[in-house]
Amino acid sequence: MRKLIVLSLLAAAVLAAPVQAAQRIKELATIQGVRPNQLVGYGLVVGLDGTGDQTTQTPFTTQSLVTMLNQLGVQLPAGTNPQLKNVAAVSLTASLPAFAKPGQPLDVTVSSIGNAKSLRGGTLLLAPLKGADGQIYAMAQGNILLGGAGASAGGSSAQVNQLNAGRIPAGATVERAVPSYLGQGDYINVELQQSDFTTANRVVDAINAAMGPETARALDGRQIQVRAPLDSNERVQFLARVENLAVDPADNAAKVVINARTGSIVMNQAVTLEPCAVAHGNLSVSVGAKNDVSQPNALSGGQTTPVQNADISIKADQGRLVQLQRGAKLADVVKALNTIGATPQDLLSILQAMKASGALRADLEII
């Protein structure tokens, strides 16, 4: 009796649970103009314990080192080609957040360009970080932090994680700010992360209900125009209220995502099946070769001749015709396909055939 009551309560909880929970607008959309900017740079890492670039194979490392020394007032004799093992050429990447101001620190990712074995213990020398326009927006320098470990001796080596890429926490300083505009004039634009007319309409309704009629209107399935105060402080307060409004997003469209390289298949809960029949069978061809030698008898005057014996076998697995009923749940779809013993690679062909026949009610996306 107690088990029956518990099961009844669980069933009631499942039925009462919403299909899709409400989300805040800040989780569904972004404000136009509020965006990060990618930065990239080039630099030298020094202080490596003999694990740097082999300068004979990476001439750009030597060239960069000579140029840097010349800028620091160290003049090398003409034709000098320093062979150093504790220097590595690296690429630098960072993300400049919106509203970043000069003096703000940034995290920097450092990645080896040449054939350095490890960047552990290295120090990045002062290097500029540039934006897409070629302007310098930050300067980077500092000690590299790696999460891996490695050792080698006597021709054997062991390594854990990646040793040719690391990070410098707060290793860059912003030198130039990127202008960010919160809309133009009386309006700002809210952009949905995914275009959907239903979600756009619900966002407009939520904003108008909380901020007053005619405050927001949809321009299309992604962009929503919102009337906002002109004063900067009032506009920030207004946006803080808007981005925390709860909205019930539109139901996800039925979709099956297939990774043809790995055989991975992911389906969401909206995938359904129409009644259909699927036949599954495999045909395998195996070719084997065994090399022998034909050895003549002594004093027969014959010659030793290699002989190749080929063994070819063809095996056809028994095909099975399985009737798949209409399915309203993802578990029904997966269970029906597993009953015919289909592997992930087989499912790639089966799902495409089911989609072509109209039995699979979902969009196929192959990545």
Rank of each mutant, 00 (worst) to 15 (best):
R227M: 06
V90P: 10
V278W: 03
A11S: 01
G221S: 10
L273H: 11
A132Q: 15
N268D: 13
Q54N: 13
S195Q: 12
L76W: 11
N268E: 15
R2N: 12
A149P: 00
L182C: 11
T30F: 10
I207N: 00
P36T: 08
V108M: 10
P128W: 11
L9A: 12
R24F: 00
T262I: 12
A336V: 01
K329R: 09
Y42M: 08
V110S: 09
Q225P: 07
N143Q: 15
G79C: 05
S111E: 15
A21M: 01
I366P: 00
A277M: 06
A260H: 10
G341T: 11
Q75M: 04
L299P: 03
D292A: 12
Q159G: 09
E214R: 08
I314V: 15
V285Q: 09
A279Q: 08
N282S: 12
G41R: 03
I367L: 11
G155V: 14
Q32M: 03
I350P: 02
I136L: 05
G327T: 04
P169A: 04
I340W: 04
N115D: 15
T56K: 13
D186S: 08
K26W: 00
L7P: 01
I31G: 00
V257M: 05
D317E: 14
T123Y: 03
D332H: 13
A253R: 14
T67E: 13
S156P: 05
L273Y: 11
L124N: 12
D49E: 07
T262L: 12
P344K: 05
P296N: 02
Q38F: 03
Y181G: 06
L84F: 01
V46N: 04
I5M: 02
V190G: 00
S284L: 11
N268W: 13
M211W: 00
G155M: 13
L9Y: 07
T93K: 02
V74Y: 14
A270S: 14
L65Y: 00
I188Y: 03
G288I: 05
A98K: 02
T123C: 04
G52T: 04
S64C: 06
F60R: 02
L7D: 05
